[in-house]
Amino acid sequence: MNRYRALARARGVASVAWIAGAFVFLFAPLVVVVGASFDGGNRTFLNFPPQEFSTRWYFQIAPDLFQSLALAVGLGLTTAFLACILGVPAALGLVRAEFRGKAIVAALFRAPLQIPAVVIGVSFLKLYYLIGDVFGLRLVGTLPGLLIAHLFLATPYVIGSVVAVLQRFNLRLEEAALSLGASRIRTFRRVTLPLIMPGVYAGAMYAFLVSFGDVPVSLFLGGPGMQPFAAKIFNLMEYDFDPSLLAISTYIIVGSFASIYFLQRAIGLDQLTRSGGG
C-alpha cells in the first residue's frame, strides 16, 4: 500500500513539474518583454533582468506606434463587428436550412482557414492591383482594402463558434415562444439571439484577435501610414529596433490579461475553450 502511495505522490509531483515547466515556457517571453521594458541602461543589447530600473521608454514611445495601435484596434473592432453581421446569418443558415450541397457550402465558408495568411496577403494584393487597373479604384494601402481582407480572414471564426452553439440549441424553446403567440421577429430577438450570444461574443473575440495579430496580410496590403500594430512591430523588428517597442508591448500584454478577466466575467472561459476557435 505504501508503495502505491509513494507512486501516486511521485506522479503528482511529476505532473506539477510538467505544468510548471509548460507555464515557464509559455510565459518566459512575456515576462522578459515586460522586464526589459523597465531597463534604463544603455542599449547595446537588450537587458533582462533589467540593469537599472527606469520607466523612461514609456515616455519615448513614438507617436506613430500609438497611431498604428489605434488603427489596429479600430480595424479589429470593425472587422469583428462586420464578421458577426456576415457570420451569424451564415451560421443560422448552415445549421437550420436543409439543402443539397450543404457540406460544400460549409467547406466554402471554411476555405479561408485553409489558405496560409501569406497567400491570402499576396493574392489580395494581386486582386487589388487588378481592380485598380480595371476600375481605377485604389485599395492597396487603404483602410477599406485592409478591412475587406481581414473580414475574409476572420468571418470563418464567427461562423464556426456560432454553429457550435446552434448545434447545442434546443429548438423547443423557439417553438414554445411561437406557440405562445410571439411573432417570428420577436422570437428571434428575445429567444434565439440571447441563446446564441455567447457564441457570437466568442466568435467576435476570435475575429478581433485574428485581425489584431495578423502580420502578413497587413504587411502586404497596408502602405506607409496604414500599418496596423502587429505589422508595424514586425517591420521595426526587422529593420530598426527601438526599445520603446518593449514598453508598448507591455501595454498589450497587460491589456490581454485584463481582457481575459473581463471575458471571464462577461461570458465565462468555458465558452472560449469549448468553441475552440483554432
Binding site: A28, I233, S249, S256, Y261
Partner: peptide, 26 residues
C-alpha cells in the same frame, strides 16, 4: 491556469518572438 493559457494565446506572436529574441540574445 486556464485563464493564463488563454491569455498567453491571446498575445500576438510578434511580441512573443520579441521576448524569445531577448532570452536567447548572445
Amino acid at each position: 491556469l486556464l485563464a493564463g493559457i488563454i491569455a498567453a494565446s491571446f498575445i500576438t506572436i510578434v511580441i512573443k518572438v520579441l521576448g524569445l529574441i531577448i532570452i536567447f540574445s548572445s
